[in-house]
């Protein structure tokens, strides 16, 4: 299957120069990855790991002080090659919403509170769809029906809708033009559990229906386990591991992934969960060598000086760790028992 997005050695830094003091924050440092047609690619990472900077580059929302200093990201929209890092504003305008769209976090801040939902649809979709009048509204109503929304929401203001409905409306806005590539940035983080599951199911159905590729960003590993086909883990600006979802959860090959998977609490299991010591590194002065080494239980001298490359360790499975062979999936038996059951 061909790839819709190819990212090669992408480096995007925040370059700041105030009063003669220059600072660079290496938010995206040498990321190489591809996204296939018709797949959901999950990106996991904690706050300030550079995942938002990365998707800003992918969404062609590069504003100073963020600058792409090396590498490229190339979309292939049915033969048309577009590099968001270099494309002209005219080209970007032409591909936005029609080919490349974006579902944002916090639906309340996306929708204009003083405009009815229908106005938002006009603003977003009328031009890319190239339809007008009746044809346009028929298309929008059909699409809303797919999202299990009644056409009445078009007349509503954002505050009149519940959080789950608003998030469905933003998904509707992002998918109404049937784009080939959708970037979803924490679309379910603010939602309650019942609604979250519903919205995830909807997003996956619509993705399968319009056959688009999705980059799904969230720090919640449980969401990735249920929606993503492949998952990439970003730590301190670097891609440290990438694999098919099942492989990543069953046999992680980077200690950070191993920790993320092992620390998920589960109902029916009361064993003590390990907590990772230390704090995420400051991207302005990242530690030398592997950026995870100050917190890594497996760190050796080599990790402190040499940067481990992202190498293929198994079929469709890449990891950046000098000791990736020794990373064991943290088996339940390895975890110490909890104190005696209470009450």
């Amino acid at each position: 299957m061909a790839d819709i997005l190819t990212v090669q050695g992408l480096k995007a830094y925040y370059l700041m120069n105030y009063y003669g003091i220059s600072r660079e924050v290496r938010a995206v440092d040498d990321i190489t990855m591809t996204v296939k047609h018709n797949e959901i690619y999950g990106i996991a990472g904690e706050s300030s790991s550079g995942k938002t900077s990365f998707i800003k580059v992918l969404a062609a929302a590069i504003r100073p002080p963020l600058e792409v200093v090396a590498g490229s990201a190339v979309y292939d929209f049915g033969g048309q090659q577009v590099d968001p890092t270099t494309a002209s504003p005219d080209v970007l305008k032409q591909i936005r919403w029609k080919h490349l769209s974006y579902i944002m976090q916090g639906s309340m801040s996306v929708l204009n509170p003083v405009r009815r939902i229908e106005k938002s649809f006009v603003d977003f979709a009328m031009e890319p769809l190239g339809l007008s009048g009746k044809a346009f509204w028929n298309r929008v109503r059909d699409h809303l029906a797919h999202l299990k929304l009644s056409p009445n929401v078009l007349r509503a203001y954002p505050h009149e809708l519940s959080g789950g409905m608003r998030q469905r409306v933003t998904i509707g806005l992002a998918t109404v033009c049937h784009p080939e590539f959708i970037i979803a940035d924490e679309p379910t983080t603010a939602l309650d559990v019942v609604v979250q599951k519903d919205v995830l199911a909807l997003l996956r159905n619509i993705q399968q229906e319009i056959k688009s590729s999705v980059v799904f960003v969230t720090h919640d590993m449980a969401v990735h386990a249920n929606i993503a086909d492949r998952v990439g883990i970003i730590y301190a600006g670097r891609l440290v591991e990438e694999a098919r979802t099942r492989d990543l959860f069953m046999s992680p090959r980077h200690p950070y992934t191993g920790h993320l998977v092992a620390s998920l609490p589960r109902i029916g299991d009361t064993r003590q969960r390990p907590a990772l010591e230390g704090r995420p590194p400051n991207l302005a002065e990242p530690p030398p060598g592997c950026r995870f080494h100050p917190r890594c239980p497996l760190a050796i001298d080599r990790c402190r000086s040499e940067v481990p490359p992202l190498v293929t360790v198994a079929e469709e499975h890449r990891a950046a760790c000098w000791r990736s062979d020794e990373v064991r999936p943290v088996l339940d038996a390895d975890l110490p028992r909890n104190r005696a059951e209470v009450s």
């Binding site: 559990v193 386990a225 099942r246 959860f249 069953m250």
Partner: peptide, 12 residues
């Protein structure tokens, strides 16, 4: 509650 038991074959 999203389960991680069966990662990659999400039941939604």
């Amino acid at each position: 509650v999203l389960s991680t038991e069966n990662a990659g074959h999400g039941d939604l």
